[in-house]
Amino acid sequence: MSYVIHGAAGAQGNPLLSRLKTAGKPVVAVGRKPGTRPDGTPVVAAGYTSVQELAGVYAGADGVFVHLPVAAEEDRLTYARNIVAALSEARPRRVVVSTSGAVIDSPHPQLQAPDDSAVLTLIRGLEETGLSHAVIAPRLFLENLLLPPILDAVRTQGVLRYPPAADFPVSWSSHLDNADAAAALLDRPDITGTIAVGQHPGITGPDLAQAFADHLGRPVSYEPLSPEAFGHLLVPLIADAGAAEVTALYERLATAPDNAISPHNSAQQLLGLTPRTTGQWLTQIGL
């Protein structure tokens, strides 16, 4: 029996893998090529395009952590359907899904992921399997602020440039907070449904800038970016399709009063987990 982690080399999967290994859990990473990670974790090759390969990895697992990769939505829909088919066939004991910031539990309808989106296709399909599962629903990740064009401006110009308006509250969280919630939920079959991860109440862009200023010991101001300008910055990092998805997300955010979680289904309420403040996160990552 083991815990299967998608994206174990990436931003969400790697901190979760580290937490599980520290707790003495047997872990298997899903990757493009079989092998062994430097930390000794076995890597099993399985592609999102193969139900057979995925089912082979999931079979007998105590838990599976899944999140859809950044890609064209048409591809993500294929991946979602294949993951559901593989989970249905393999029947692992527990599944935890991260929405990766896609909104599925907001009171603002304009922020909700479309019914035909890949993330909701994955979640609805998982519900139909009858498997024990939970869905982690973060909002925006603090690690977004470490993207080279964003962090470079903070360091060289003392300006934090990011899309939301200066008075727009967001329940920011880090990948570390997401990993804390995922690790807890993999061993908590009594908790199902959607668990919101993020700071409550939400914080604004100037709040983020002040945290950077306090941490770096010099002034940092906040300057909103348009969604289009932000998407353009991301093209070299995640290609046109990924940048287009991100641009569309921030365009939707601009039509709402906030992107904050509700306390009733929060990790704070359901799991007793308080997310890191921006200052705590900056200290922990050693910026």
Rank of each mutant, 00 (worst) to 15 (best):
G101M: 03
A179R: 08
P189M: 01
E53P: 15
H232Q: 15
T99W: 03
L270M: 09
R124P: 15
A241L: 06
V64H: 03
L160Q: 09
R139H: 06
T78W: 01
A183G: 08
A102P: 09
L287C: 06
D75E: 11
L271W: 07
G56R: 00
V4M: 05
V170G: 07
V154H: 09
A166M: 09
L282N: 09
P201S: 00
W281D: 07
A61H: 06
V154C: 08
V30M: 02
P189A: 00
G193N: 06
G60H: 04
E223A: 06
A8F: 05
A153G: 15
A86E: 04
S88T: 12
Y48C: 11
L142G: 07
L282V: 12
I123K: 03
L237A: 14
A59M: 07
V235N: 11
H6L: 10
V30T: 07
F65V: 12
Q112L: 12
P138A: 00
A241P: 13
L131K: 04
G286I: 08
A184H: 12
P236Y: 00
A46E: 02
A229E: 13
Y222F: 08
A239M: 14
Q52Y: 11
L253N: 13
L237K: 10
F212Q: 07
A209L: 07
R161P: 15
I150V: 15
Q52C: 03
P263I: 00
A267Y: 04
P219A: 00
R218S: 14
V246P: 13
P114N: 01
S106I: 13
P169F: 02
Y79I: 07
D214Q: 12
Q112F: 15
H232L: 14
H133F: 08
A8I: 12
G63T: 09
D240M: 06
S221Y: 03
L140V: 14
T22C: 05
P38G: 02
D240Y: 15
L151T: 12
H133N: 10
A181E: 10
G47Y: 10
E251I: 03
V64F: 05
T36Y: 05
L237F: 13
G130S: 05
A80K: 04
G272R: 03
A11P: 14
G31S: 09
P107F: 00
T204V: 11
R139P: 08
Q12M: 09
R218F: 12
A72G: 10
Y58R: 02
P92H: 01
L233R: 11
L287H: 05
S106T: 14
R218G: 11
P114L: 00
V44H: 10
